[in-house]
Design a protein around this nucleic acid. Structure first.
Lengths: 112, 112
DNA sequence: CACATCCATAGCCATATAGCTATATGTGGA
DNA sequence: TCCACATATAGCTATATGGCTATGGATGTG
């Protein structure tokens, strides 16, 4: 029950998406689908080795996957890897709702 | 339409929540509600000045608010500040769904 | 085979920042 | 007033990392 994702994974996802350049690359893969390193480099605003490095980070975090085809590597987004982030956020706001439930409960008791 | 949160805010929220210590402090405020710096320091695993610094970061990102009461400062979580993060994640997975819609559409056309 | 192309890796540097201790600031109590 | 307490700030250091250039390794092409 719960805790499907290790805190470790969550840590890495948060840390990986914190960098704007890296997040932009991931976002582009989400929007445009599978893309090669060369295409991603054009418009990334940084050099090709930097793009490769960021893609390696994203891959380590499970956020992208690479597919080799000849000389090119095609990367694509792994949408499911966003789950730890979304789950965590929902858990946090969940505590907020529970507090309101408790407040409502308290008010109901006070009514009696 | 959309773009209620500046990319700037999103950047800051991501960057702020990337640090595990800081995220743990925020998480505690979510779970336990309003807490003083002293209470947060106990169990944070770092010194009091570090906790104060992290709280200042969280405040700058809009993730917490502080309430002064005598010598103490009571901090509490601003759950709404998580919205940019959740919205972004949903936007990303939205692109995924659109792709499936397009695929389904394509398959429907091929059926004819 | 020789050469070009695509990507990954190595090695370097500059900067950002998370942690520390020491101290300042502000508040309550004797 | 004097001291204790709670928090914030200042100043420092070590480390992590995002950027670069140079180069290696692999794959097409003439």
């Amino acid at each position: 029950m719960g805790m499907v994702y290790m805190a470790n994974t969550r840590d890495e996802v948060f840390r990986t998406l914190a960098d704007p350049t890296r997040r932009a690359i991931f976002e582009r893969l989400c929007r445009e689908g599978e893309r090669t390193v060369g295409v991603l480099t054009a418009g990334a605003g940084v050099s090709q080795p930097v793009v490769s490095k960021h893609l390696a980070s994203l891959k380590r975090a499970g956020l992208v996957r690479g597919r080799h085809e000849g000389r090119q590597t095609h990367y694509s987004a792994e949408y499911a890897a966003l789950a730890p982030l979304v789950d965590w956020a929902h858990e946090m706001t969940g505590f907020w709702e529970k507090k309101f439930d408790a407040l409502e409960d308290l008010l109901n008791r006070m009514d009696q």
